[in-house]
Design a protein around this nucleic acid. Structure first.
Length: 890
RNA sequence: GGAAGCAUAGCUCAGCUGGGAUGAGCGCUCGCCUGACUAGCGGGAGGCCAAGGGUUCGAGCCCCUUUGCUUCCACCA
């Protein structure tokens, strides 16, 4: 025996060995080669803080499937890997770690902190990569990049300076989302709204009388969820057409506690239907109020410090935390009789997606990207189909964002990230944006300039990922050859954060789209449909699954029965099934190799191939076509399902069983050789089709199989993807074998129903007037007998000489008789046949109904009509057979 | 408030441009250690495809309405 395979498939050990082989052979590496067509995927860079989770596992499985598929098809496939510095996520983790050591980030200082961060990167940055390797990911590791490596840093600076010159990047005081715990601004996309139970405080402000003193009878009542912001109120607003308050237009109210007189303004922003129709205006602490304030030229009074405590503008409340101040203010208002009532109220509160702290809207000087112009080509590209989103419905989500675009706040008050290339003159305050620190101030000539302390939003660099990883801003060969990339595979949850930003960046800086297709996948949830999360502790570690079941089983599980963009639930039972399938493939291969052992398998002539051989070759041929089509259309789950069904059902359960008698019959070497050749050929191609999904097991078997050859290829990875061949299509044999399969199924069914012991054989008479059908059975006699547990198979044109009490099975074009004289229960037999008769009558009624419908005949396509006619003939014949048999029994 | 998705076998899901639901896995049930595989083999039960309309010769699939669940966006004090 050439090589002994173990009885059950054991992935451990084997996977690492094969992966190392692939690395050694440089199969993952792609070089610019103009004789080949490139196929490129850039990896969504995992965070350096990251641990491989099921989302990564799914994302990377999909990418690896596509890249391996295209590589086998002969494309120059590049899967560009790398990691992301993940500015805030990493900074939070490091800060936490420092805290554990009793060190405050600010005491440590920026430089030392960054040293720690780089140490962290060194320690953990490689972890996720080694985990991706466990999955079998065929990334070109020689090209691994990092969002903060030298090249990416250059790209970021270049982009910032260029966009600033064009006026796309500006600095301005805007209301932004502030996280008082992380001490940084965050973008709109980072705010996560949570429904929280709170209160609605109804408060009234006294209206100012003509004499300039507050009235003690006339008030304006309104409601607020954040009473502490009243310290910064600079107006009260009503709707201009609200008759209830029209007499107050032009008047003022007294802001209690602060004793500030503030105007009553009119603005259509006010909803007359909501509450009392009165809104207090706090421009410094509410985005809408900020807009109102701008329209009415109201002062902006910031009453909060960065840590959300009240600042010196808050009078006697200065120094209190925002919630402490809230309580104190409510208490005082109540004492003054200005608190009307308190209502329970659940509302959405903006929180920071990283730390869940309630976000505080604050007015701050920040850097922004002006989006209006930039977004246009990005929206257009999806609209005109230059970029395709899969599934298509994601376009709606996409346009929802592009149509309501807001300027992107890109500055973060963090240390870990790309520092903003803006420098301020220590003398005159002039701001200079430049690739390198200027020697002197262009305005006053001062030589002391200080760089902006802020860093950029982490997505600023990932937006450039598809081209910065290929060398941009250098015009490298790689960039020219591999860009634009082909497919981006990612979760729909980062469409705003990342996908859109890459698209407009691609158009802006490269003048071209970053990728042709975006393939979205959903979330991997737990068995109860919940999101996997650390806080719930319901996460399933992919590495544990790999350890136990193998990477192939995990990959197959993640990809089967799942459509693009749909969430999926993770079940251990499904992994077990995948593992069982791996074992099935393993054992089928083991069986084939055992039988090939010691023999030289030669290519059989056309005549030497038997109908069953042609049947399975033809079925394989169809599979090649269908599965390839599905994969080209990114229907990965459907494609692999077809391969799975083919291997397990058609190949293992039918073909191998059909061929066994020929393998065991040493007298007919020609037939045996034809069977072995077919087995080997079909197995090899099936393994190839399966390889992108289950790379390890297919490689192991393929190589073992190849070792039995004189000239063997060294890896399935670099073998050619099977192609549909017209000369391998045998529709006639497909039909013929289908009839035999039906006969076998029918006989098994009857035997099972009658409780015939499996070991008990009986003769089977095949009665048909159709010469071709008899020929089919004649040719398949050997295996038909074995599958149908027949002691002998007798073919005849009529039922002469058959025991009239025999059990019968009707299949299209033939009736089978099995004489079980001692077992047959005529009543039961009648019942069975009557059931079959009824079924056929139903079918006939349906087909006849269609074919007698003139509108059907005139409107339905030709092919459909022909199909129905064929069915009519088939069922009519079968019914005649059943009728005749019933007649005979009665 | 706006939008999207989902509702198909006991459970979890597939079902391509409308053309018989022999759909998959698990579960259930009956029978088998049949010279690759009990991580297996053979048989079986189980679905008026959420409800109601419409378009069509024909609807799980297209249109409208309703109900239930999920998600995204906006965020009104």
């Amino acid at each position: 025996m050439g090589k002994e395979l173990a009885k059950t498939y054991d992935p451990s050990g084997l996977e690492d060995r094969l992966y190392q082989k692939w690395l050694d052979k440089k199969y993952f590496h792609a070089e610019v080669d103009h004789s080949k067509t490139p196929f490129t995927i850039v990896i969504p860079p995992p965070n350096i803080t990251g641990q491989l989770h099921m989302g990564h596992a799914l994302d990377n499985t999909m990418q690896d499937i596509l890249i391996r598929f295209k590589r086998m098809q002969g494309y120059n496939a590049l899967w560009q890997p790398g990691t992301d510095h993940a500015s805030i996520a990493t900074e939070v983790r490091i800060t936490e770690k420092l805290k554990e050591e009793g060190i405050d980030k600010h005491d440590l200082g920026r430089e030392k902190f960054l040293e720690r961060a780089w140490e962290w990167k060194k320690e953990y940055g490689g972890r996720i990569i080694s985990q991706l390797k466990k999955m079998g990911s065929s990334c070109d590791w020689d090209r691994e990049r990092f969002t903060m490596d030298e090249g990416c840093n250059r790209a970021v600076t270049e982009v910032f300076v260029k966009m600033h010159e064009k006026g796309y990047i500006y600095k301005g005081a805007r209301i932004i989302n502030w996280c008082p715990v992380c001490n940084t601004s965050i973008s709109d996309a980072e705010v996560e709204y949570q429904e929280q139970a709170g209160h609605l405080w109804h408060i009234k402000y006294p209206v100012m009388k003509e004499d300039g003193t507050p009235s003690d009878t006339e008030f304006l009542t309104f409601a607020t969820t954040r009473p502490e912001t009243m310290l910064g109120d600079t107006a009260v607003a009503i709707h201009p057409e609200d008759e209830r308050y029209s007499h107050l237009i032009g008047k003022s109210v007294m802001l209690p506690l602060m004793n500030r007189v503030i105007p009553v303004v009119t603005d259509t922003y006010v909803d007359r239907e909501f509450g009392t129709g009165v809104v207090k205006i706090t421009p410094a602490h509410d985005p809408n109020d900020f807009e109102v304030g701008k329209r009415h030229d109201l002062p902006v009074i910031n009453v909060m410090n960065d840590n959300a405590s009240i600042n010196e503008n808050g009078g006697k409340f200065a120094g209190m935390d925002r919630y402490e101040a809230r309580r104190a203010i409510v208490k005082e208002l109540e004492a003054l009789g200005l608190l009307v009532k308190i209502e329970d109220y659940t509302h959405n509160v903006g929180t920071h997606d990283r730390c869940k702290t309630t976000v505080e809207p604050l007015v701050k000087e920040q850097w922004f990207v002006k989006m209006e112009e930039l977004i246009k080509p990005a929206a257009e590209a999806v609209k005109n189909g230059e970029i395709r989103l899969i599934p298509e419905r994601m376009e709606k989500t996409y346009f929802n964002w592009t149509d309501n675009i807001r300027d992107w706040c890109i500055s973060r008050q963090l240390w870990w990230g790309h520092r903003i290339p803006a420098y301020y003159c220590d003398e005159c305050g002039e701001c200079v944006v430049a690739g390198q620190a200027p020697q002197q101030c262009p305005k006053c000539g001062c030589t002391h300039l200080t760089q902006d302390p802020d860093t950029l939003d982490t997505w600023f660099s990932s937006a450039l990922w598809p081209f910065e990883t290929l060398g941009w801003p250098e015009q490298t060969e790689e960039l020219k050859y591999f860009y634009p990339t082909d497919v981006l595979v990612t979760g729909y949850d980062i469409i705003f954060f990342w996908v859109i930003r890459m698209i407009f960046s691609g158009y802006e800086h490269m003048g071209e789209k970053p990728f042709r297709t975006v393939l979205f996948h959903g979330l991997v949830r737990d068995g109860q449909g919940r999101k996997m999360s650390k806080s719930l502790g319901n996460g399933i570690d992919p590495l544990e699954i790999i350890e136990k079941y193998g990477a192939d089983a995990l990959r197959l599980t993640l990809i089967t029965g799942n459509a693009p963009g749909n969430d999926m639930r993770f079940y251990y039972e499904r992994v077990e099934n995948s593992r069982n399938f791996a074992n099935k493939v393993w054992n089928a291969s083991r069986f084939i190799m055992m039988n090939m052992d010691g023999k030289t398998v030669t290519v059989p002539s056309a005549q030497e191939l038997q109908p069953v051989d042609r049947w399975i070759l033809s079925r394989l041929n169809t599979l090649v076509k269908d599965a390839t089509d599905n994969m080209e259309n990114f229907e990965l789950g459907i494609a692999v399902q077809k391969v799975y069904d083919f291997i397990w059902d058609e190949f293992c359960d039918w073909y191998i069983e059909m061929v066994k008698p020929r393998l065991y019959n040493t007298d007919d070497a020609v037939s045996q050789n034809a069977a072995l050749w077919t087995l080997k050929t079909v197995l090899t191609d099936a393994l190839k089709l399966l390889h992108p999904y289950m790379p390890f097991i297919t490689e192991e078997i393929y190589c073992t199989l190849q070792e039995m050859e004189e000239e063997h290829s060294e890896s399935i990875m670099i073998s050619r993807w099977p192609e549909y061949l017209e000369e391998r299509s045998f529709p006639k044999e497909e039909k013929a074998i289908e009839i035999i399969k039906e006969a076998v199924r029918g006989i098994r069914n009857v035997r099972s129903e009658m409780n015939v012991a499996p070991g008990r054989k009986a003769s089977v008479h095949v009665v048909s007037q159709d010469k071709e059908i008899l020929d089919t059975f004649e040719e398949g006699k050997l295996f038909f007998a074995s599958l149908a547990s027949a002691s002998e198979v007798v073919l005849q044109m009529d039922k002469a000489g058959i025991d009239p009490d025999a059990v019968s099975v009707v299949i299209p074009g033939a009736t089978l008789y099995i004489p079980f004289a001692d077992l047959v229960d005529i009543a039961q037999e009648l019942q069975r046949l009557e059931k079959e008769q009824k079924r056929l009558e139903g079918e006939l009624a349906r087909v006849n109904g269609m074919l007698s419908n003139e509108r059907f005949l005139s409107k339905a396509p030709e092919a459909k009509i022909a199909e129905e006619k064929e069915k009519l003939a088939k069922y009519t014949k079968m019914k005649e057979q059943v009728d005749a048999r019933l007649e005979q029994l009665r």
